[in-house]
Design a protein around this nucleic acid. Structure first.
Length: 488
RNA sequence: GCCGCCUUAGCUCAGUUGGUUAGAGCGCUAGAUUGUGGCUCUAGAGGUCCUCGGUUCGAAUCCGAGAGGUGGUACCA
């Protein structure tokens, strides 16, 4: 009452969320299903620690005292800066560089783990979340990309997405590079501005993107975004390129050949996509699961070749009846320069990653709730502290029989104990009072059945007399009777 | 990072032109019911009215700053 000045506020830091049993069950189910697929593809499990040295993450800023660009950083006692990993790829690159000599190459691994990003949280965006990631390091073959794509598609399907709920969209950075070279764009900054503009295609439409490719765009709030400064004809070429996606993979390739053919880098990109197409076809991945889409960007600066994005196609309504679009649930691509940061040797690599809780909420919206309500244990009601040994003998017997059970350990009366069991979603409560102990019997209350029966009862006396779902039987028949209730 | 809106009980919210002890519904705890979930009735607990400063005899209410939330926008490994 008087010491409240220093009392802490009970709240989680912003962008950090608590996970109840239901969500955890869904996420674990996804991980186990996806892991099974990834292992079948020959990827081995691998994990690193949560912290990396900040320079290994590429987040050490020479000018700043503190590496603060989106990472959580702290200083070790030898004054080196460490940071919580912000994805699973950078630690993988560090590990591969460190163990290159002894690794079987190509190195194929998958990982899932918590990552942290020190940035503004938004709807569906947190500062701590679980990522699942698979990479092949040490293969430059486009077939390595194809296999990652096929595996991603199969993984999403195994997680519970139906055919047609999602599609993998594939592009290649080299195509756009070739196009830009032909259009006379040479500076890195301008190239990045073009990529950013194209990335907004689905939100702003071709007209909005045209402004961003040219002089710039002013949005409704009056904010002005500087454009890439392309000429009108160059902007037209970019837009024509992004619109070349078709439902059929080879048809898209033919169209793209017309739009960008002739530039050396563009031809290289086309050849890679063509081999990806052939490998995918061999793997049995049709155009219903993976297509070529030249508008895919994946804003990341480090991608060097193929890029891909898993897009959710399903549309659903939120609790207010507003339609929600999920868009991308995951993505990846080829990053041939990441390991070279450490060793100087270029090491080709390709990978795919997705956010686990994002996929879980997408699945929920698709009507595929893997985290069905978690059932509570069978609850043994406590009448008298003197009979505690009898309660524990009973609960031990149930546990030995493989039935989740607990003795109520609170201090409230019987009514509250029933309420507790109800709220835990327990299948049954066991009443072992003085009467039962004397008679060598036990009373089981089937809570689901009682709940169903209670809807018809309005009269209190009848409710009390009826004791819906309740049966008293000889002690020896307890476990078989409980099994029947649990299996119902 | 920039712009808009919002912040009153655990939740959803009401609160008159600035006026005395800040309310409702739901939820929670308990009683009616010697040993029973629901219904009904009754009682109870629960509040730094986001924070700090200002105006005023008087502020949940008006003004300023800050924090947090939210929606855009920018960025996104």
């Amino acid at each position: 009452m008087t010491d409240d000045i220093s009392r802490p506020l009970a709240r989680a830091p912003r962008g950090f969320v608590d996970h109840r049993a239901r969500d955890l069950a869904a996420e674990r189910e996804i991980l186990s299903r996806v892991s099974a697929v990834y292992e079948r593809y020959g990827f081995e499990a691998f994990d690193t620690g949560a912290l990396e040295y900040a320079d290994a993450l590429g987040k050490f800023l020479p000018d700043a005292d503190r590496p603060n660009e989106g990472v959580f950083a702290l200083q070790d006692d030898d004054e080196q800066w460490m940071a919580l990993r912000y994805d699973l790829t950078a630690p993988l690159a560090r590990f591969v560089a460190q163990s290159w000599e002894t690794l079987p190459k190509p190195f194929r691994r998958y990982a899932f783990g918590t990552v942290w990003r020190n940035e503004k949280p938004g709807p569906g965006r947190f500062r701590e979340f679980t990522q699942c990631d698979a990479d092949t390091v040490g293969s430059a073959r486009p077939e390595a990309d194809a296999e990652i794509i096929a595996m991603a598609a199969e993984g999403l399907g195994a997680a519970g997405l139906a055919q047609g709920d999602y599609v993998l969209k594939i592009n290649n950075r080299k195509l756009l590079n070739g196009l830009l070279v032909r259009a006379g764009v040479t500076t890195e900054g301008q190239k990045l501005a073009v990529l950013r503009a194209v990335d907004k295609l689905d939100r702003l439409g071709p007209d909005g993107v045209r402004y961003l490719l040219g002089e710039g765009r002013k949005d409704e709030s009056g904010a002005f975004t500087k454009g890439a400064g392309l000429s009108t004809s160059a902007a037209d070429a970019v837009l024509a390129f992004t619109a070349a996606g078709r439902a059929d993979r080879t048809e898209t390739l033919d169209l793209l050949a017309n739009v960008i053919g002739g530039s050396a880098e563009g031809d290289e990109g086309l050849a890679e996509l063509s081999r990806i197409d052939q490998a995918l076809t061999g793997l049995g991945v049709g155009a219903d699961q993976a297509i070529f889409d030249p508008s895919v960007v994946r804003g990341l600066e480090y991608y060097t070749g193929a890029v891909f994005e898993a897009e959710l196609l399903l549309r659903s309504l939120d609790e207010k009846g507003q339609p929600i679009r999920f868009g991308s649930v995951g993505g990846g691509g080829r990053y041939d320069d990441l390991v070279a940061r450490f060793t100087g040797e270029p090491v080709p690599a390709t990978g795919f990653s997705f956010g686990v809780s994002r996929l879980a909420s997408a699945l929920r919206a698709a009507g595929q709730d893997l985290g069905r309500q978690t059932r509570g244990p069978v609850v043994v009601i406590v009448f008298s502290p003197d009979d505690m040994p009898a309660y524990f003998a009973l609960v031990a017997e149930l546990r030995a029989a493989g039935i989740a059970a607990e003795v109520y350990l609170g201090s409230s009366g019987m009514k509250a104990q029933m309420k507790y069991a109800d709220r835990r979603l327990s299948p049954a409560a066991i009443i072992l009072g003085g009467d039962e102990i004397l008679a060598g019997t036990v009373t089981i209350k089937d809570l689901d059945l009682g709940r169903a029966l209670s809807t018809g009862v309005t009269d209190n006396a009848a409710w009390r007399a009826e004791r819906p779902g309740q049966q008293t039987l000889p002690r020896a028949e307890l476990i078989p009777a409980l099994r029947r209730i649990l299996e119902a």
